[in-house]
Amino acid sequence: MTAKSILTAAELDGIAALISHYPTARAACIDSLKLVQEKRRYIADDVLAEIAHLLGMSVAELDEVATFYNLIYRQPVGETVILLCDSVTCWMMGRNQVAADISKRLAIKDGETTADGKYTMLPIVCLGHCDHAPAMLMGKTLVGNVDAAQLDRLLPEARA
C-alpha cells in the first residue's frame, strides 16, 4: 500500500502477530477487527478497507464477516458499551426494569449513545452469569445482580 497507513504501528504489529496464529491470513480477520476496535471503539469504513488489504481480502469479503458478528461495531459507539443481558433468566429477574432505569439515567434507548459520547446501551444474549441475574457487561467488566444501587455506583454521574 503506497497510501499512508491509517492504522498505527502497534495495530499493524498486532495484526501481524495474529496472522501468525493461523495458516491463512484471512483466519485472523475477526481477531484483527477486535484488536483495532479496542482503541478505535468501532470499525470505520476506511479502517475496514485497510484491514482487508492487509489480510488479502476484498472490502466486501471482510464486511461480510464484520457485519455478521454483533460484537464488531460498524458504527461509532460510546467510550463504554453497556451490554445488558436480555436472555431468559435476566428477563425473568427484572432486566426490563433495569433497562428502563439505565435509559432514564442516561437518556438513551437501546442502540443509542449518550450525547457526551460516554455510553452506548445495547442488549446482549446470556452472559453466563445467570445465578446473578440480571447481569450486564460494562465495557469489559461483568456485573451481576444489577439493581438501582449498583447503577448508582456504576453510573455516578447519573444517579437516579
Binding site: V59, A60, E61, D63, E64, T67, Y69
Partner: peptide, 19 residues
C-alpha cells in the same frame, strides 16, 4: 467476484456490495 456478498445475519441478511 469479490465485490459482492452477503452482509448481516439472521433475518437481516443483505445481498449487495459493500458500497
Amino acid at each position: 467476484g469479490d465485490d459482492f456478498g452477503v452482509f448481516g445475519s439472521n433475518r437481516n441478511v443483505y445481498f449487495g456490495r459493500d458500497e
